[in-house]
Design a protein around this nucleic acid. Structure first.
Lengths: 211, 211
DNA sequence: ATCAATATACCAGAAAACCAGTAGATAAAA
DNA sequence: TTTTATCTACTGGTTTTCTGGTATATTGAT
């Protein structure tokens, strides 16, 4: 019945992990490990000529940054499903990976069942994020928002106008208020977000999702 | 066998959509529509006292912004799975919703099958994003990166220092170069990203994932 | 009705950023 | 080797932002 097994490529600089994955997937007739690589360069070279269904991609490769790697792979072969792999789980990295197009994420202590489940889900075009990962993502969101100072409606509005590159005078004209008032709001914004200029104001505002 | 149907609450300001959803789900014995609301306030009031498994949440509510709504719901009841619903599909909104914690996203033209599939996947703790949504997300990523001007290594470095709130002089000291040189880089950065001040420089740099 | 929060407004000086134009040094690619 | 890109640096002037104060009108909530 399994005429077409799922072709998987493993990318991880740690040979032990590769062996582990091979063992975990050994019994699965639906999954075929087509190849494995220990760095980004070789993987990309492989993808020049050949392809696969799923790539298990370690986040910490020696040569190429994991996040960029995702983009590069999908640039070449948009229909490969990428499953991120890592030992730890830093929320910001996971977030970036997702934004760049990974279809799933696994910790390296995943069980055989999880692994198979993840691969088959992603192969079906779905996403797979285990419960630990979901928890981590949820925590990172609440953490972001917890120590966010409250901005007034007016402040939020002016903040977004600053982000658009408008000057104090521009904003004053647009809102029919005095430039001096805009200045005050500007100052209050910087004080609340604990920064000392507009550039970092925008950075932390975006980090804290105020824009 | 279905002792515990999945309890679903529908939130949409358009009664027609609510009716449509009720009809589409009518035959499903595994899914029970527990309640429905046409605005955010009522929904939150309901969640004060009662709960459910899944919320089908329209993005364009009359009173509360859809993105914020997600946060508010999860704040009260973290284990409710939220499925975003909308007619159109603006990538940035979908991205925001996901970051705030929706577990899935559906277009309002979804078929009955998709709907049931989405609800049951999310109820199992998985994500559900239909192929259209995945395509939209993928496009938005490639669109972001396609018209991104190339920054030199030095420029990227200085860009990130600007984002940290450092002044031209600070940066010059840190890099052991003339403030005048930093000024030049600064200008080139603004020119490349087509902005006229540091605030918007940071904004578009983050949008284009250069930071 | 009163209190707290918000939005408004001002002065004045210092610091930093922005604009326009130019140009030498170096390093990498054609 | 010539070209191209990058990094470096300058002059001089204008605009904007930042800092440290102060202060009144308006609004929302108790």
């Amino acid at each position: 019945m399994q005429l077409k097994p799922i072709n998987v490529v493993i990318v991880d600089d740690h040979p032990m992990v590769i062996e582990g994955l091979k063992t975990l997937l050994a019994g699965e007739t639906t999954i075929h490990i087509k190849n494995y690589f220990t760095n980004g360069k070789d993987t990309l070279a492989f993808l020049e000529k050949d392809t696969c269904d799923i790539i298990l991609l370690d986040v910490n490769l020696p040569d190429i940054n994991g996040v960029e790697m995702v983009g590069m792979i999908l640039n070449k072969r948009a229909n490969i499903g990428i499953l991120g792999l890592s030992t730890y789980s830093e929320p910001s990295i996971i977030n970036q990976m997702i934004r760049n197009g990974v279809k799933g994420y696994l910790l390296k202590n995943a069980t055989s069942n999880e692994l198979v489940e993840a691969i088959s889900q992603v192969h079906k075009g779905r996403f797979y994020f285990g419960s630990e990962i979901q928890k981590i993502l949820a925590d990172s969101v609440s953490q972001d928002t917890k120590d966010t100072p409250k901005l007034t409606r007016r402040e939020k509005h002016i903040l977004s106008l600053i982000a658009e590159g408008k000057t104090t005078n521009n904003i004053a004209e647009e809102l029919f208020i005095s430039p001096l008032t805009v200045e005050t709001h500007r100052r209050n914004l910087m004080q609340k977000l604990e920064v000392s200029n507009a550039a970092s104001l925008i950075k932390v505002a975006i980090e804290k999702k105020l824009i």
